[in-house]
Design a protein around this nucleic acid. Structure first.
Lengths: 119, 119
DNA sequence: ACGAGACATTGACGGCTGTCAATATAGAGG
DNA sequence: CCTCTATATTGACAGCCGTCAATGTCTCGT
């Protein structure tokens, strides 16, 4: 959800490089951001995220994603659920197909914390 | 180690925003970066990293770090080991004290992948 | 040499994670 | 309705993770 994002966007909008190196994170901040990173800290989910984000229209259908891996369909479905529950992707069911869309703000939130995002 | 970094720095130096959204990660790239993110995807280690990175001189002694948490000394030592083995911090023993230093390149590598780092 | 302080390692424990096979659900088309 | 296709859920299993208490290792004073 956007609760994690709210913690990052307000004050650090102006500052440029790595809040992580600028001042220590509060316990609260760390506990909000860690789940986002944890959701992304898996090879399969990293590839899923990049496949979704770089796909035409910024969204991808599960059927496309399944083919990119040597994993069972339920496993991919599980990883997508993890990404979704972390607030990293949106779910959109259209007919028989389900489309996942990358939430750029969530990615930006992590990027802003770790590295540096020009907001 | 810098093996993970090497995969990211070469081509994407020029491009600005989120390689993750620009083109899909290869399996190899994902498997190299995921461990770095996994090492950082913990509230305690996130705070440790930020405490180290934002400390005077870019380094911090374990004794300082211990006091910032309500955790046992071995637990902090364990987390520092995880960060160190992931290549996120350097270890420097000086006398009785051990100093940990943030490896900016490693942070930048993750940041460049997820968000956007002006290199 | 000895004691004390700073940090690491070991061993143990409950809890979480990634994976699959099997099964369920839910639209679309006939 | 019935079946097919697309996706999700459940249940099970091995393996990893975060934590602590106990112990080990190193280094500086004395």
């Amino acid at each position: 959800m956007s609760t994690a994002l709210a913690l990052l966007t307000p004050a650090d909008s102006a500052a440029c490089c790595s809040p992580l190196s600028a001042q220590p994170l509060t316990t609260e901040q760390a506990e909000q951001v860690a789940p986002l990173m944890k959701a992304l800290a898996d090879p399969v989910r990293l590839r899923l995220m990049s496949l979704i984000a770089s796909h035409d229209g910024g969204e991808a259908c599960v059927c496309d994603l399944n083919d990119a891996f040597d994993l069972s369909q339920p496993t991919i479905s599980h990883h997508l659920k993890v990404l979704h529950e972390a607030g990293l992707v949106d779910r959109d069911k259209r007919g028989v197909w389900v489309y996942y869309r990358a939430r750029q703000q969530a990615l930006a939130a992590i990027g802003a914390l770790i590295g540096c995002t020009p907001i």
